[in-house]
Design a protein around this nucleic acid. Structure first.
Lengths: 225, 225
DNA sequence: CCCTACGCATACCGATGGTATGTCAACGTG
DNA sequence: CACGTTGACATACCATCGGTATGCGTAGGG
């Protein structure tokens, strides 16, 4: 077929975007390890030559996709925060926005599951820091300076909150709709028909509300007396 | 060399343990993706035939190692909790124990980084649930029933706290001693010689204390008035 | 004592990430 | 407008990896 091609750099950018789109879709649905380069280039309608012309390899392609995803999430968080006037409301709104944004299963697989494993935790943390965690740390600093939050080191608090939201988002996405696409049979289901306390049941959409409430409580508890 | 071999099942168990030991060591230091089966069997002094005689493959070997690691962590947590009499003290002691136990970089790479990516988040969560998160949920339930903690759904709270501790532990391990073994050059360090606020500095051993304090505050805030 | 079967070694295979080289059109230049 | 250059890929190829099929010696029960 050989595209009739417009201008040079336009075609280049087009190919790059198609590669990013398709690889993001595949990474999100199947996971990094289950996707082969052959599948990516076939979906994108190009060859491995094109891929390696634009990226340094599979990991670099993934990193670029991850940066894109994190930037989107970061923008959503920032937008939700900017919609509020009071710094405290900005914090809560930003956290809630992050929680809901991270509920998307596509975002999860790339940003929260494969991200640390593929790039290493340090590199992943650096990207997360630049995209959204920075906002959190800054907002906490502001609130401490204003005396709204009890004075304390911000770094540990940032990571505690960030981790809490990440894990909660993963749980929410895994519990709703559910029966994951991969992992067909899990074996070892010792038949627990009617447990007295539901340990981690598949759960309902009310889980989102419950989690938001729990997160709100957790944030509110930071306020100085 | 062909081991002179003691009894049959003893030799079998020996080989299995050696495989687990060496693979755990390699998985922990290099990460799942960077370790080849050839390297594992060479370190264990056996061949791939032995490996596939004991396990269903690389992922199954990893899963077994992960179960072992999580069981160890779970035991540490349980032991710390049992040392206390008051249910509330049991909760805090267990959480602190989990935080310190998870600080070990070896534990991290296997349990927190590669675990979800290799086995999938659902399977990973099931293992975590069985090993240590279950204790957390149970303890929270007890405390709610006793009226120590404000009544609320335990599942979201469990995941929020669990995620907070996981992420905090990763940060602690990454920040202390540091300069990771992999990832030699990171590029794009736009020279920020003296930032006014330290965004996520490499940090000191006091970070552990700070984090424990922050976690304690977070837990204390759960108490009913 | 023997022969089954268990525990493992050896040899081999397809697929995968990565590389080296070829090709053809766009673009600057005279 | 001819022409050589270069950028944007395609093609062909390779090393290594996880996984499988098969061979083989010895423990252990009959």
């Amino acid at each position: 077929m050989t595209r009739s091609t417009g201008t040079r750099s336009a075609q280049r950018e087009h190919t790059r975007q198609v590669l990013l789109r398709e690889s993001r879709r595949l990474f999100a649905t199947l996971g990094y390890g289950e996707v082969g380069l052959a599948e990516i280039v076939r979906a994108a309608g190009v060859t491995k030559g094109a891929l390696y012309h634009h990226f340094d390899g599979k990991a670099d392609l993934f990193r670029t996709v991850l940066e894109q995803v994190q930037q989107e999430v970061g923008e959503q968080v920032a937008r939700a925060a900017e919609a509020e006037a009071d710094p405290w409301d900005q914090l809560t709104a930003g956290c809630q926005a992050f929680l809901t944004a991270s509920t998307d299963p596509d975002i999860q697989q790339i940003m929260l599951i494969d991200g640390p494993a593929v790039l290493g935790w340090r590199a992943w943390r650096a990207l997360d820091e630049a995209a959204s965690a920075r906002h959190l740390a800054e907002q906490l600093t502001v609130l401490i300076d204003q005396g709204v939050i009890e004075p304390q080191p911000v770094a540990p608090l940032t990571h505690l909150l960030s981790g809490a939201m990440n894990e909660a988002a993963l749980w929410l996405a895994a519990s709703k709709t559910t029966t994951g696409p991969t992992e067909p049979a899990d074996a070892a289901k010792p038949a627990k028909p009617a447990g007295p306390a539901k340990p981690a049941g598949p759960a309902e959409p009310t889980d989102l509300a419950d989690t938001q409430r729990a997160l709100s409580r957790m944030l509110r508890s930071l306020r100085a007396e």
